[in-house]
């Protein structure tokens, strides 16, 4: 059997890769993809705990996470399109209209 710690380390690694991508990439759409990686990493650890504790709560919560991810992506990509209409770039460094 796979020990629970393997799943947790796997999940933490994926989460760190997602954070890394959000911090170093400047392309807005790739940043969204890295947020998706982080949400998926959380799902892995929720479901792993579920299996090891014989519960169903974690699966329900990862179901909610998938719903929130779907809503987040649709709104986020709509915002990207609206921004692109204003200024034809997805480089986050150039979108500094609200910078104080």
């Amino acid at each position: 059997m796979v020990p629970l710690s393997h799943y947790l380390i796997f999940s933490a690694t994926l989460f760190s890769i997602g954070v890394l991508g959000v911090l170093i990439r400047r392309n807005a759409i790739v940043v969204f993809m890295c947020v998706e990686i982080m949400l998926n990493a959380v799902n892995v650890s929720l479901i792993a705990f579920d299996r090891y504790l014989n519960q169903h709560d974690g699966q329900i919560f990862s179901f909610m996470v998938i719903c929130v991810a779907a809503a987040e992506v649709s709104i986020g990509l709509a915002i990207v399109i609206a921004l692109f209409r204003n200024k034809p770039t997805v480089n986050l460094d150039e979108l500094n209209l609200m910078k104080w």
Binding site: C67, V68, A70, A71, E72, S74, I75, L77, A78, I79, I81, A82
Partner: peptide
């Protein structure tokens, strides 16, 4: 409710 709001919001934004 969240998905409904997201649907309406995406249409309005785009």
């Amino acid at each position: 409710i969240l998905l409904l709001a997201a649907m309406v919001g995406a249409v309005v934004l785009a």
